[in-house]
């Protein structure tokens, strides 16, 4: 695809460097990490992500949404959305990462850019409780029909407690941790504490 300001992206010796340079020129100086020949990670502020994605989708060879997923950074009070956008003909992917406020947990949908985003956003909505207004299947159960608990992929969802509740250990099981057992058996004790 021809970009009037920069020339043809396909001719560039390093597509990753070149696309990042164009994003920097157009949208701002986002931190970029060149991870390997086919992958560049860009940390984009939330306000810029939709413009960047629309631009990539419509005006560059980066036409494919390879995946979309979320990470819960509970300690930071943030969610991170990770969009992997690929230029299939140039064989380069951009990992666009956006931090969201965890308390608000809302992001703009990319459904009108990529059809399959509806399923990705449906799953993230179900598993993380992040809402994408305007995405067609928000709130519709995808995997967890009848689930009434916290979205289970959130870090504060306690998997162990859930398992103990729903799949109790069979009776008669008893484990001795060797460290504790040895210490007790051989009279280990502390003289200071």
């Amino acid at each position: 695809m021809f970009d009037i300001n920069h020339g043809n992206l396909d001719d560039s010796p390093d597509v990753g460097q070149e696309i990042v340079r164009r994003i920097h020129d157009r949208f701002g100086d986002f931190p970029a990490r060149f991870q390997k020949a086919d992958l560049v990670r860009l940390d984009v502020p939330q306000k810029d992500i939709i413009p960047v994605l629309s631009w990539l989708r419509t005006e560059t060879p980066f036409v494919q949404l390879t995946h979309l997923t979320a990470v819960d950074w509970l300690e930071d009070g943030q969610f991170e959305l990770m969009y992997l956008v690929t230029a299939p003909d140039l064989m380069v992917s951009l990992h666009l990462c956006v931090r969201l406020d965890r308390a608000k947990a809302e992001a703009e949908s990319v459904f009108n850019l990529w059809l399959q985003a509806e399923t990705y956003e449906q799953e993230i909505n179900e598993m993380f409780g992040i809402h994408f207004p305007g995405s067609p299947r928000q709130g519709v159960p995808f995997i967890l029909e009848g689930w009434r608990d916290m979205p289970p992929m959130r870090r504060d969802f306690d998997t162990v407690a859930y398992c103990d509740r729903t799949h109790p250990v069979r009776p008669g099981r008893e484990h001795q941790d060797s460290r504790v057992y040895v210490g007790r058996k051989f009279g280990e004790k502390g003289y200071l504490k």
Partner: peptide, 20 residues
């Protein structure tokens, strides 16, 4: 633990648990 209820989420009334 706070219980997350997706039925209160926006969009839930558009398509309920049984889609038809």
């Amino acid at each position: 633990m706070s219980v997350f209820d997706y039925t209160t989420q926006p969009g839930f009334d558009l398509i309920s648990e049984t889609p038809n």
